[in-house]
Design a protein around this nucleic acid. Structure first.
Length: 565
RNA sequence: GCGCCUGUAGCUCAGGUGGAUAGAGCAUCGGCCUUCUAAGCCGAGGGUCCUGGGUUCGAGUCCCAGCGGGCGCACCA
């Protein structure tokens, strides 16, 4: 690899010049006239060496010998940058690596096979999943995938808050609708659920048990109705997620924490740790010891725990299950829980900063600059399913990922429904399909362009080709960076730019306009080299899309314009 | 009032951990175009990076103080 050779040569030279432990950053300059690679070491070392940057740069150049690394020229530029120009063969050598690695190009091992848990979605089973859950599903799944690609052993987990007040409200709502079904005068309670799905559940219940509980106000009947409702809602949520291509390794029930005695055990552990006190008939935890803004109630004066307690028990359990790295994906409206849960865990001796959080802002769907709501099923909100049935799963997933989690997400329906290159998802998919179509045109399978085939890659000398190749080379480091920042949008950004570069290259070679740039050139050597590049582009786009959970079709079947429901 | 997030082109947003002339998509405008199948291609205009200080060779990026927006501050989850 030219890059590593240059880096180590620089390190050697800098040692000779008296720098003890030089760290050399090499980057691809924005402006192609600044060469293929550049470093700013001369500037960063100006202070240490007590000399002007350009003078240091000149000395480095005079000591370097980089012919073997494929460097064709080195120059000092601007305030003290060193710009390297590579031979076309050195630039293109990465294509062989890409074809060799194929479906695993972009994977790396920095996670060293250690375990990490990603917990996401974790919606209460009180109704269908909404848009916020959709963003969370796409994000959590992509973050998990990024960790997988960078060498972690990933566990995807969903936590169901299936105990507590919200469940009671659900059960009471179902009982009201069920009663109404049989002409009884029930009313949905103040904090109950009004969506159409509640009536559906009541209907299903009536279909199953008839009027058996129509006049039964007992706790047993209510429990049965609660269990029935939770089962149906969980099934619906699972369907919604499966059709969104999101799957979990484990579903963890809050109720199991009580059954297994983990909640009681946690209280005892906290007592033993000495951070528990009683006041006004309630049991408190001194979370202010660990940076929380105020102490928190664990057990209310009526004897019932607050949600905070099972939360701590749950996360302690994660640690005890061996997950010493955990990433929780949550809506930022829950960010208040972060310092509380962490404080509770630190009281039990777990490290500061455990678990990690990815907090995301809310989603707003707009058409023509105005917010749209097309909720039928849930009443007050748009469901995830309603969205992806409108725009398609690929588009929905991609749009949920393409903004950084911190930022509010404006989901532009006009753009989402557009089927041209203006839609970033299609832009990337078209570029991939285009590469495939070149092979179809040549009467080859893409896999037939093999690395180490006698293609002379130094023939790829055109600026558009060099720029494209340099982008392909950056894919692994892009994945690495996206993973370390838990930021899938970095990959989206990369794919759009790479697809753009590929499209420009492809279009520049339009045979009727510019036959000398055509991929399927008459000259067999040139054709072979360009087919290697075509294949490499296809691999990178395929891997990037796959990583994000988005299809990479070989052919784009243009769908009928989406029919408004 | 306190805490977290946020403020970059008309709009939606990037900006690789401090580097060269701040980028992309959409929209707008101007040229091409019927193809190695993709309602396409090429190009242009457009900026007080919220404001004011500070740190240094260099700040959209780091620090401080303001201003604007979002969210959170229950014996709710």
């Amino acid at each position: 690899m030219a890059l590593e050779q240059i880096r180590s040569a620089l390190v050697t030279v800098l040692r000779e010049m008296g720098v003890a432990d030089p760290s050399v950053g090499l980057e691809r300059p924005r402006d192609p006239s600044h060469g293929d690679l550049a470093t700013n070491v001369a500037m960063t070392l100006a202070k240490v060496l007590g000399r002007p940057p350009r003078q240091i740069a000149e000395e480095i150049v005079s000591r370097l010998d980089l012919v073997a690394a494929g460097v064709s020229a080195v120059e000092v530029a601007g305030p003290g940058f060193l710009n390297f120009r590579l031979s076309s063969g050195a630039v293109a050598s990465v294509l062989d690596d890409i074809l060799d690695a194929d479906g695993s190009y972009g994977r790396s091992g920095s996670g060293k096979g250690e375990s990490v848990m990603v917990e996401f979605v974790s919606a209460n089973p009180t109704g269908p999943l909404h848009l916020g859950h959709g963003r969370q599903a796409a994000l959590g799944d992509a973050v998990a995938s990024l960790l997988d690609w960078t060498g972690w052993r990933v566990h995807r987990e969903y936590y169901y808050n299936d105990s507590g007040t919200q469940m009671d409200n659900l059960a009471l709502s179902v009982r009201a609708r069920y009663g109404q079904h049989f002409g009884r005068p029930g009313e949905i309670p103040e904090n109950g659920y009004h969506g159409a799905y509640v009536a559906d559940i009541a209907q299903a219940l009536a279909d199953e048990v008839g009027d058996r509980w129509a006049d039964d106000d007992s706790a047993e009947a209510l429990d049965a109705m609660r269990a029935f409702a939770v089962r149906l809602i969980r099934e619906e949520q699972d369907r919604d997620l499966a059709d969104f291509r999101v799957h979990f390794d484990e579903y963890y029930l809050e109720s199991s924490l009580y059954r297994d005695g983990r909640v009681d055990a946690t209280v005892q552990a906290l007592r033993d740790a000495g951070y528990v006190y009683e006041r006004d008939g309630a049991v408190w935890l001194r979370t202010t010891e660990f940076g929380d803004q105020k102490d928190r109630v664990m057990i209310r004066s009526n004897g019932a725990p607050t949600y905070f307690l099972p939360d701590v028990a749950y996360h302690l359990g994660k640690w005890e299950r061996g997950y010493h790295r955990v990433i929780n994906v949550q809506g930022s409206d829950h960010h208040g829980t972060v310092s509380r849960v962490r404080a509770g865990l630190r009281a039990l001796g777990l490290p500061e900063g455990y678990p990690e959080y990815v907090l995301h802002q809310m989603v707003r769907v707009e058409r023509d600059g105005k917010e749209v709501k097309f909720s039928k099923r849930a009443g007050s909100y748009t469901t995830l399913r309603e969205l992806y049935e409108e725009v398609g799963v690929d588009v929905a997933r991609y749009f949920m990922l393409m903004r950084k989690p911190d930022a509010h997400l404006v989901f532009d329906l006009d753009m989402a429904l557009d089927q041209s290159d203006k839609n970033p998802v299609y832009k990337v998919q078209y570029a991939h399909a285009r590469m495939c179509s070149i092979f179809a045109k040549a009467g080859l399978e893409p896999e037939e362009a093999v690395a180490g085939s006698h293609a002379d890659l130094s023939l790829l000398v055109h600026d558009l080709e060099r720029e494209l190749i340099k982008r392909l080379r950056e894919f692994p480091e892009t994945v690495e960076r996206a993973a370390s920042q838990a930021a899938p949008h970095v990959v989206c950004d990369y794919l759009e730019q790479t697809a753009g570069a590929a499209n420009s290259w492809y279009h520049a070679g339009n045979p009727s306009r510019n036959p000398e740039l055509t991929v399927l050139a008459d000259d067999p050597a040139l054709r072979a080299a360009r087919l290697v590049l075509t294949r490499a582009v296809q691999i990178v786009l395929h891997n990037g899309l796959t990583l994000l959970g988005i299809d990479a079709p070989r052919r784009m079947d243009r769908a009928e314009a989406a029919v408004p429901a």
